[in-house]
């Protein structure tokens, strides 16, 4: 629904500005160009998306993803406290986070949903507000992805000399963003008491 409003507003502005400035001919031409650009962009980045998906499939089958999950468990214990003592919960959260780190959104969501369900169940049993669920959702709305391959592919197609030179900046911005999300949850939780 929001996207409908966004697109509607953009088109309305394009027609109004185009009419006022006398650029309506260019606007008409641009409608055709935009659709062509979408095909070009997909051709430019589609190969990288596919290649990376192929490599991730190898990582899943070889157990490399599993190793990464294990490495994350101390951090998860720190963030989720006593909830992480539940074996099932810990496993799903670590699968969710490792898939996010690798940029495998399609695997991250199912694991994340299972983790959230388990967290919800645990907080119901304990009669607590589901703060663990909220924390997990907020972490999933922030980006943990280590290699933004799609963005790098866009940069490469637009003539960047080094498409991956944004990595350190992406890591810094992501880390601060995730920390801000976790801190915000902590603050809201403290304010809302219990």
């Amino acid at each position: 629904m929001i996207m409908t409003c966004v697109i509607g507003a953009m088109l309305a502005l394009a027609v109004i500005f185009g009419g006022v400035t006398g650029n309506i001919g260019e606007v008409s031409q641009a409608a055709l160009d935009g659709a062509k650009q979408a095909v070009t962009l997909l051709l430019n980045i589609g190969g990288t998306i596919c290649l990376w998906n192929g490599l991730l499939e190898i990582m899943n089958r070889s157990g490399l993803s599993g190793h990464i999950s294990k490495l994350l468990q101390p951090i998860i214990r720190l963030l989720f406290g006593s909830y992480a003592k539940d074996e099932e919960c810990l496993r799903y959260i670590s699968q969710n986070m490792s898939a996010n780190l690798l940029g495998l959104g399609s695997a991250a969501t199912p694991a994340g949903l299972k983790a959230a369900k388990r967290l919800q169940q645990l907080s119901r049993e304990r009669g607590e507000r589901p703060h663990g669920v909220f924390l997990l959702i907020v972490i999933n709305t922030a980006s943990l992805q280590l290699l933004p391959t799609t963005v790098a592919a866009v940069r490469a197609s637009m003539g960047s000399a080094r498409p991956f030179d944004i990595l350190p900046a992406v890591w810094l911005a992501s880390a601060v963003s995730v920390a801000a999300g976790i801190t915000a949850v902590g603050i809201f939780r403290a304010v809302s008491k219990k």
């Binding site: 953009m10 650029n23 606007v27 641009a30 589609g46 596919c50």
Partner: peptide
């Protein structure tokens, strides 16, 4: 991965058309 590409394409086409028109209008 080809499924992922197919999934993002529709929204991308709509968005790029609107962006392109808005840019051309000034």
């Amino acid at each position: 991965g080809m499924g992922v590409c197919a999934g993002i394409f529709p929204a991308m086409l709509i968005m790029l058309t609107a962006v392109s028109m808005l840019r051309a209008s000034g």
